[in-house]
Amino acid sequence: MSPAEPRLLVEVSRRVHAKLTLDASLSLGSECGVLFGSSGAGKTTLLRLIAGLETPDRGRIRLGDDVLYDSDAKLDRPLRRRGIGMIFQDDLLFPHMNVAANIRYGLKGRGRAEADARLAEIASLCGVEALLDRQPMTLSGGERQRVGLARALAPRPRLLLCDEPFSALDVMNRHILVERLKTIQQVEAVPILYVTHSPAEAVALGTQLFWVSEGRIVARGNPLDVLASSHVKGTTRLNGIRNLIRGRLEPPDQAGESRLRLSLDEQTVLVIPAVSDHPPGAELTVEVRADDILLGCRAVSGLSARNVIPGVVERLVPHGDETEVLVQTGSVTWISSVVNSAVDLLGLEPGTAVNMIIKARSCRVLDAGSVEE
Rank of each mutant, 00 (worst) to 15 (best):
E250W: 08
P251Y: 09
P251H: 06
P252W: 12
A255K: 05
A255G: 15
G256P: 08
G256F: 03
E257H: 15
E257K: 10
S258H: 08
R259T: 04
R259I: 13
R259G: 10
R259W: 11
L260I: 10
R261E: 07
L262R: 00
S263D: 09
S263K: 00
S263L: 13
S263M: 14
L264E: 09
D265C: 02
D265W: 01
D265I: 07
V269D: 06
V269W: 03
L270W: 02
V271I: 14
I272R: 03
P273C: 07
V275T: 15
V275H: 11
V275F: 13
D277P: 05
D277M: 15
H278N: 14
H278C: 15
P279S: 04
P279D: 13
P280G: 08
P280A: 01
P280L: 05
G281Y: 08
G281T: 02
G281A: 08
A282H: 06
L284C: 03
L284A: 04
T285E: 12
E287C: 13
V288M: 11
V288C: 04
R289S: 15
A290M: 04
A290H: 09
D291A: 03
D292E: 04
D292H: 12
L294G: 14
L295Y: 01
C297N: 03
C297T: 12
C297G: 09
R298T: 08
A299N: 08
V300F: 03
V300K: 06
S301Q: 00
G302I: 03
G302A: 08
L303D: 07
L303C: 01
S304K: 13
R306N: 01
R306H: 11
V308H: 10
I309V: 12
I309S: 04
I309D: 00
P310H: 04
P310V: 08
P310D: 06
P310M: 04
G311F: 07
V312A: 02
V312F: 02
E314A: 11
R315H: 04
L316S: 07
L316P: 05
L316E: 00
V317P: 08
P318C: 11
H319R: 14
H319A: 14
G320L: 03
T323G: 09
T323C: 10
E324K: 02
E324I: 15
E324V: 14
E324S: 15
V325Q: 11
V325P: 12
L326H: 01
L326M: 04
L326G: 00
Q328T: 00
T329V: 06
G330M: 10
G330T: 02
S331Q: 13
S331K: 02
S331M: 02
V332I: 00
V332R: 05
I335S: 02
I335W: 04
I335Y: 06
S336V: 01
S336C: 13
S336E: 05
S336F: 00
S337G: 15
S337H: 10
S337I: 14
V338T: 02
V339Q: 07
V339W: 15
N340P: 06
N340D: 07
S341C: 15
A342H: 12
A342Q: 13
V343E: 03
D344W: 06
D344E: 09
D344H: 11
L346S: 08
L346A: 07
L348R: 06
L348H: 01
